[in-house]
Design a protein around this nucleic acid. Structure first.
Lengths: 206, 206
DNA sequence: CAAGATTTGTGAATATTATAGCAATAAATT
DNA sequence: AATTTATTGCTATAATATTCACAAATCTTG
């Protein structure tokens, strides 16, 4: 093992490995190997071994990998051993969907607060959460020490809200707004825009 | 210009270029250049020029690119000059959000049908759509000649529904289910799983 | 317990992707 | 109209990423 700078493209694959391993665990598989993992992911076995070898030696020759051990290892590497609190800003359909989604807990996250600036939504209940006024966002998010946010406001509001989140101490933002956010370099930003992925596919259609 | 095989990684960037160009058009910008585009996208100017040059010569030395012309060109390349009809399967919160979303039309898509297998949802109205029974999916999607689908059913149902979509003639699927689908090679598949992106970011957090 | 079958981790070889740099061209300026 | 400035498209180069292939380690089988 060599602890140099790990390429980001490798880091990006680790969550997928973890996802498949957690499915394997549900299927009661106790051990696996790079060939099987690769087949499930559409990735070569060599790549999986190389990626993992960046972080240590987790397998055993002749046998492969312990599913449980590799899950735990990847959770440590990806920093999701505990659940990160998440703030959702934007209580529209998408915010609703995220606030209701049951899949976060066993993958390292938990929605903790939901905000919106629409008076018709403020105070309303969404599952376990009461929609709070975005005007109070900075104070409340800072007080709760939340560092991860999901942004589901309209594109026109996204930049402003993102800046408020940063002021509140958030350092990782997953934005569903179809615009490029302009934020300090130390802030992690990822985007979800289904249309980008649809257009990627239509390129290959007749 | 050389029409060899275009690398997929280049194709994946084109929708982002188109997105930014459409914003520029809204801002009434008439021309732009690789430097400005690159700054907005966090990509080098050379890369943008190189990517575009794979498809032809669209710029003018000393001036840059016409925003309108480049938008039209990218729409042709990405095959989104007309609007693709989309079927949404799964009428939960996420399906609702997608059915209501106003952003598809001017980017090459239009939701046309919504399905679910839950008797409590079938027949219900979601915006302009009546939720239809998944039992009728194959016939109705085939009859409507829909080739693009968004899958928002629970993970446990996703593989089965995806196979039905393929039988119905769908060749591009955007899946929100957090599992890897197993489908014929000629089917385009893309995934949206916010947790993968959250975990990618937490790797870099303290 | 020896022989054969597996499977890892990794250095070396290949392949792919990104960047640098510049001739060519167009526009702006004097 | 000559000079300067801006910007493309593209070739050459550099940087990254992937795959190959094999010694070493472990398990399986007779």
């Amino acid at each position: 093992m060599e602890t140099k700078k790990i390429p980001d493209i490798v880091v990006a694959r680790l969550p997928r490995y973890l996802q498949v391993l957690q499915h394997m665990k549900q299927e009661k598989l106790v051990t696996t190997n790079s060939k099987v993992l690769g087949d499930r992911l559409g990735i070569s076995a060599a790549q999986i071994r190389k990626d993992l070898s960046q972080f240590g030696e987790f397998g055993k020759q002749g046998t492969g990998y312990s599913v449980d051990f590799l899950i735990n290892t990847l959770r440590v590497i990806l920093n999701v051993t505990d659940a990160w609190k998440i703030v959702v800003v934007g209580a529209g359909d998408l915010g609703h969907a995220l606030a209701h989604y049951q899949g976060f807990t066993n993958r390292g996250f938990q929605v903790s607060m939901v905000f919106d600036n629409d008076p018709r939504l403020i105070g309303k209940q969404i599952g376990a959460f009461t929609v709070q006024d975005t005007a109070d966002l900075i104070d409340k998010v800072r007080a709760a020490e939340i560092h991860v946010a999901m942004l589901t406001v309209p594109a026109s509001a996204a930049q402003k809200v993102a800046e408020e989140l940063v002021k509140a101490g958030v350092t990782a933002i997953l934005s569903y707004a179809p615009i490029v956010l302009n934020l300090p370099h130390n802030i992690q930003v990822q985007y979800i825009d289904p249309i980008l992925q649809l257009q990627h596919m239509t390129y290959y259609l007749e």
